[in-house]
């Protein structure tokens, strides 16, 4: 049985002006020790889905359909107090910006011990020792002294390590990392990804990695979901997705990433247009207005994820990109943008 199983999750934001259809029915399974990638442009609903799973959506947001099965429980139906027990203990989350995600007035040690004391019922000294061990585990040098320092005394990369320490302090079964490397330097990015990889391998955690960076996904995810306008439009084993993207949007994403091995003449091909306005829910494929392959059917009926090239590779498209065309474009993207 899957560790976490999301079924038809739908999230809406109800504001005075409009209803935002942020997430429109996504489903996926996560196994222990598995790393799952979710890629997409900003505003496509990646972060919102993860906040929804943990029940920490902003006040205007609500889960309107679907379930999030964790063990024998549906997180969507849990009371907030029960959900609070799960957050931090069974599911940890790492956020994008380490500069703002730590409380500036608390010592980092206190921020880690707070989690431990809440969930594991540790006394002050025990929690302190454990916090030092966890900070050491995530690669903070001199952890036993640095627990007394404040966040502003750490660099961005070190703060992200502290953030990860908070998230994994109770050895959760699942870690959700929402753009964990976006705000960091490239060299630091690689270190943080390495750390996450190591945690998955050694602790057997399931990792959901949310990013807009295809290079990050290529480096560490086994399966990748491509998200667009609140839906998964393509899902496949990462290698296969990079080798043979079948959804025009995936192809567009790959084409707009610069490649080291590309010749000088080869131009980047941006995706024309902008993501759709999520306050209006239209029939048809939401990518159709920007899609060179769109047909009348695309504009009229919403495509569902369906198997293509075998059951592992699924795509939601009425007119997938032909295999032959794909091969010439994307074959080397994996090596080029991977770490």
């Amino acid at each position: 049985m899957a560790l976490l199983s999301v079924e038809d999750l739908e999230v809406r934001f109800f504001t005075r002006r409009a209803t935002i259809h942020a997430v429109n029915g996504i489903s996926f399974d996560l196994d222990a020790g598995e790393t799952l990638g979710v890629v997409g442009e900003s505003g496509c609903g990646k972060s919102v889905s993860s906040l929804a799973m943990l029940g920490i959506l902003p006040k205007t947001g609500r889960i309107t359909r679907g379930e999030v099965r964790f063990g024998d429980r549906d997180l969507v139906k849990l009371k907030d107090a029960d959900l609070r027990e799960i957050r931090g203990r069974d599911i940890g989350m790492v956020f994008q910006d380490p500069m703002t995600s730590l409380n500036p007035v608390l010592k980092v040690g206190d921020q880690v011990t707070e989690v431990l004391r809440k969930h594991l019922d540790m006394d002050k000294d025990g929690a302190r020792r454990e916090a030092v061990a966890v900070l050491d585990r995530v690669g903070i040098p001199h952890a036993s002294e640095r627990v007394y320092d404040y966040p502003h005394q750490f660099s961005g990369g070190m703060r992200q390590r502290v953030m990860i320490a908070m998230a994994i302090a109770c050895r959760p079964k699942i870690l959700i990392a929402d753009e964990p490397t976006t705000a960091l330097d490239v060299t630091i990015q690689a270190q943080i990804l390495d750390l996450l990889k190591g945690l998955v391998k050694e602790e057997g955690m399931g990792l959901i990695l949310i990013t807009h960076d295809l290079g990050v996904v290529a480096g560490i995810c086994e399966r990748t979901h491509v998200m667009y306008a609140g839906r998964f439009v393509e899902t496949a084993p990462t290698n296969e997705l990079f080798d043979r993207p079948r959804h025009p949007y995936t192809l567009g994403l790959l084409r707009s990433v610069p490649r080291l091995d590309a010749s000088q003449k080869e131009k980047l091909i941006p995706i024309p247009g902008a993501p759709p306005d999520l306050s209006i829910l239209r029939e048809g494929c939401s990518f159709a207005p920007r899609c060179p392959y769109a047909t009348d059917e695309s504009r009229e009926r919403t495509p569902m994820l369906e198997g293509i090239d075998g059951p592992m590779h699924r795509v939601a498209c009425w007119n997938p990109v032909p295999d032959a065309e794909v091969a010439t474009v994307a074959s080397s993207s994996l090596e080029a943008s991977g770490s």
Partner: peptide, 12 residues
């Protein structure tokens, strides 16, 4: 962000 992060680890 730090409030969201604190909520994400179950701070009541």
């Amino acid at each position: 962000d730090y409030v969201l992060a604190a909520r994400s680890v179950g701070v009541p």
